[in-house]
């Protein structure tokens, strides 16, 4: 791959990454990188890249704050289910599908998604995307990461892959835990759609799975912005704050009727459209539009992250 030329020039062998990178990144897996993944061919190259990705995932899920964040995400559906059990809501009030929960526990998954979509899930993505480049730059491991003979685009790709996995695990935790806890507390069975019809349990689970993928896709788009921001600074907290400011600003713009002309361009505008799945038949147009917007943000911000990172001087 021609991108190899953009890797930094070789360094004195004394300070070889072979010794430093594994210890500093506290992960023995990283040594796999040193098998010159770019020069490998065929399956071995992919294996080396997979090892890199695996080490990245381990780093991400090994961090205490990320584990704590996942616990917070997981607490919301539990809290929701218990609260609804203790005092059933009146009709038509509260967050989406709240009044449906008592009839079918699967709705805990939908309602938790609605509740966490505005703040908790974006916050989780902001936290982990701050760690990707800025976090490594902050603790000084980025330069060692760059010494390994992996091209910078590929480092970005692996970082983004880890964020995508993180997005699916975060959303999946909310949805699956919500559905399981809800099913235990309220039971399952036929689901009543918004159209007043009934669908079977299998169809309900299928729609919940589509909602999971759709919301996770939105989180992946947010992570792409986060990855770009992460290449701009060496302060992970700055990335987290900036990303949350962006999300909050988008929600505000989305809520102002006078700015409605901007809505098609906002990332968050179509996020809640997963609720359309509960119409019968499901309504797809909004979700398809939302998926296009997500995809556009992913393309633009990954390219911007590459444009920034490929030429970045690593000073820390």
């Amino acid at each position: 791959m021609s991108a190899r030329k953009s890797t930094p020039p070789s360094h004195p062998s004394k300070f070889s990454a072979r010794k430093l990178a594994p210890t500093l990144r506290r992960d023995p897996e990283s040594s796999a990188l040193l098998r010159r993944s770019d020069t490998l061919r065929g399956p071995r190259r992919w294996l080396a890249l997979w090892r890199f990705a695996r080490s990245e995932l381990r780093l991400m899920f090994g961090r205490r704050r990320n584990q704590a964040g996942l616990v917070v995400l997981a607490l919301v559906p539990i809290l929701l289910a218990v609260a609804v059990k203790l005092s059933p809501p009146s009709r038509g009030g509260g967050p989406t599908f709240l009044d449906q929960i008592t009839e079918n526990g699967l709705f805990v998954g939908f309602t938790s998604l609605t509740v966490e979509l505005t703040l908790f899930l974006p916050l989780a993505m902001a936290m982990v995307s701050g760690d990707t480049i800025a976090g490594e730059a902050h603790v000084g491991t980025l330069r060692y990461l760059l010494t390994v003979p992996v091209s910078r685009p590929r480092i970005l790709a692996v970082k983004y892959f880890a964020l995508v996995v993180g997005a699916f695990i975060a959303v999946g935790t909310v949805v699956v835990l919500g559905a399981v806890v809800g099913s235990i507390i309220f039971g399952t069975g036929q689901m009543t759609t918004l159209s007043g019809t009934q669908i079977g349990l299998g169809a309900g689970i299928g729609r919940l799975a589509v909602a999971l993928v759709y919301v996770a896709l939105g989180m992946c788009a947010l992570a792409a912005i986060g990855l770009f921001l992460s290449t701009l600074t060496e302060q992970p907290i700055a990335v987290t704050v900036a990303l949350m400011v962006i999300v909050a600003a988008m929600w505000i713009v989305d809520a102002v009727p006078q700015l409605s002309f901007l809505r098609p361009w906002l990332l968050v505008d179509k996020w809640p459209a997963f609720a359309d799945l509960m119409h019968d038949p499901p309504r797809w147009d909004q979700m398809i539009q939302g998926a296009w917007v997500d995809g556009a943000y992913i393309v633009v911000f990954l390219l911007a992250a590459w444009a920034r990172f490929a030429g970045k001087d690593i000073t820390s």
């Binding site: 989406t96 599908f97 609605t114 918004l194 159209s195 007043g196 809640p272 459209a273 609720a275 359309d276 509960m278 119409h279 309504r283």
Partner: peptide, 8 residues
């Protein structure tokens, strides 16, 4: 069917 957001 009049479609609202999460209502109908």
């Amino acid at each position: 069917a009049i479609m609202g957001s999460a209502s109908e």
